[in-house]
Amino acid sequence: MNRIIRWFAMTMIIIWVVAPFIPLWLWSFSLRWRFPNLLPEVWSPRAWLYLLKPSSGVLDATIDSLVIAVVVTVVSVAIAIPAGRALGLYRFRGKRFMEFLILAPTIIPGLASVFGVHGLFLRYHLANSLVGVILVHLISSVTYATMVMWGVFSNYNPEFEEQGRVLGANPIRNFRYVTWPAIFPGIVVAALFSFLLSWYQYLLTLIIGGGKVQTLAMLLFNFARSGDRPVAGALSIIFMIPALIVLFVTSRYLTGENAAVSGLGGGR
């Protein structure tokens, strides 16, 4: 009985994950596919061959997307660890204000804040640059990464660090051997969120990048708008691959024993 349930669940999950891909694959290999038909009328590898050509800009956009997402992820996590720690562990003057500040970007539409900073970016020559794009991506990534680490540290017993110290660990080794392993699952989740938020970001990149910064998301949007569905389908698949890899690699930290929130919970 248990087995049947497990197989059923697995099947459902596979359908859930794979099904949306089927039309994309079909589109990517079609030359003509009109409405009532269940399958493309004319098959062709045209879209794929086109995208693999250097002139398509796919490689450059992938590199740009990766560079931006990786930098955003590293910076977000580096900020989220001390920020989450302060919010989760300590009481201090102005904490409520800090909490509000951290949460604000989840309520205020990204668009609104971007219009706010656009002028500033123009003045400091950050608009239309990679750095500018990274900075706007950070607004939401830092927020979500901090929220994750905040949760981790709310459930964290800092006495473990005191124990490490008295046993002879200096602050650096103490972080390396005591704190890091305890918060690592949380860091993976925070990094995953940061990466995906940046990877799938379109609108903010368009406004601040001013078309000069071409990420995969921008490229995809252009093709989708131009009506070339086969190319858009193929590009969608390419677009999702890195995200799927990241998700797959990190999935064991999202559930079960290794779940991010387990931390050093309570100590007992």
Binding site: E159, F160, E162, Q163, R165, G168, A169, P181, R268
Partner: peptide
């Protein structure tokens, strides 16, 4: 002298064994 070099080792009330080791 900082804790890590002082040589006074404390055993906490709730043991605090590192769970991932």
């Amino acid at each position: 002298i900082p804790a890590e070099r002082r040589g006074a080792v404390m055993v906490f009330q709730n043991y605090l064994l590192f769970p991932y080791m």
